[in-house]
Design a binder for these strands. Structure first.
Lengths: 125, 125
DNA sequence: CCGAATCCCCAGAGATACTG
DNA sequence: CAGTATCTCTGGGGATTCGG
C-alpha cells in the first residue's frame, strides 16, 4: 500500500494552499512580518491592492487565526494588525518559498521563453 | 530605506505563487515526487481532476520547466511525466509547506470555528 | 490511451461611491 | 481613517464530445 490516491480533501498541501494561494494573502503576510502595522500603511505598502481586497484578505487571515486585529476607538479610529504566533510560524515557509523564487525564477523565465519559441505558444496563458 | 512598497511585480513571493497556486498544480507535483509516471496514473492518483485540468496543469508545468514529458509513439501511445531537476528543487519547499499544514492546520480549524461562533459568520467564505 | 476542442457557469477581483 | 455596499466583468474550472 504505497502512495494511493491523493484527493484534494485528504492532502495537506491543499490545506496550506487554501490559505495562502489567494492573490494577495502572501503579500499581506509579508507586509506584516516586521511587526504591527496599521491598515493604511499596509495598503500603501502593497501597490495595487484595493480596499475591498485588503479588507477581505485581512478578514480571512483573522478568521484563520494567522493575524490579530486591534482596534483603538478614537477619532479618527486606529486599527492595527499583527501576525499571531501561528501566523509567525508560517514565516519560515514563506521565506523558503521566496528564496526558491529568488534562486530559480530566472530559470523558469528561460524555460518559458524556450517553450514559447519552439512551438508557436500553444499554452493558454 | 527600509521595507518600501512590495508591489506584485517586485515581490518574489508572487512569482512562486503564480506557479503553484493553481488549484491542481501542487497535487500534480506531489504525484510526481516519487518518479516517472504515466498520464492515466496521475489522473487515477488525483481524485476529482478532469482531463482538461490535468492536461492544462501539465502543460503549464512543462512550460515552466518543472516537468518533463516523454512520448513513446506506439499503439496505444505511452506518455510519461517526471520532475525536472528544477522541479525537484521545489520539493523541499513543498514538503515544508506540507509539514506546516500537518502541524498547524488543526489550529486553523479551531480558529475558524471560534471566529464563526462569536460573530455571526460575517466572512464571505 | 492520451489528449484537443467546445460550451457554460459562477466565484473572485476591480472600480466606484458612501458611512461612522 | 477604516471600512461597507453594489455593480460589473473576466477567466478558472467542470462536463462533454471528438480525434490520433
Amino acid at each position: 500500500m504505497k502512495s494511493r490516491d491523493i484527493s484534494l480533501a485528504a492532502c495537506s498541501y491543499s490545506h496550506v494552499l487554501e490559505i495562502i494561494s489567494n492573490k494577495w494573502t502572501a503579500l499581506v503576510i509579508y507586509s506584516l512580518e516586521n511587526g504591527t502595522i496599521r491598515y493604511g500603511e499596509i495598503q500603501r505598502r502593497i501597490e495595487g491592492i484595493s480596499q475591498k481586497m485588503l479588507t477581505q484578505t485581512l478578514r480571512q487571515l483573522e478568521r484563520d487565526g494567522l493575524v490579530s486585529r486591534k482596534v483603538t476607538p478614537s477619532v479618527p479610529p486606529i486599527v492595527e494588525y499583527a501576525l499571531t504566533p501561528l501566523g509567525d510560524s508560517l514565516i519560515p515557509c514563506m521565506k523558503m518559498l521566496k528564496d526558491w523564487a529568488a534562486d530559480h525564477y530566472s530559470e523558469v523565465g528561460k524555460a518559458r521563453e524556450a517553450y514559447d519559441t519552439s512551438g508557436a505558444e500553444p499554452v493558454v496563458r
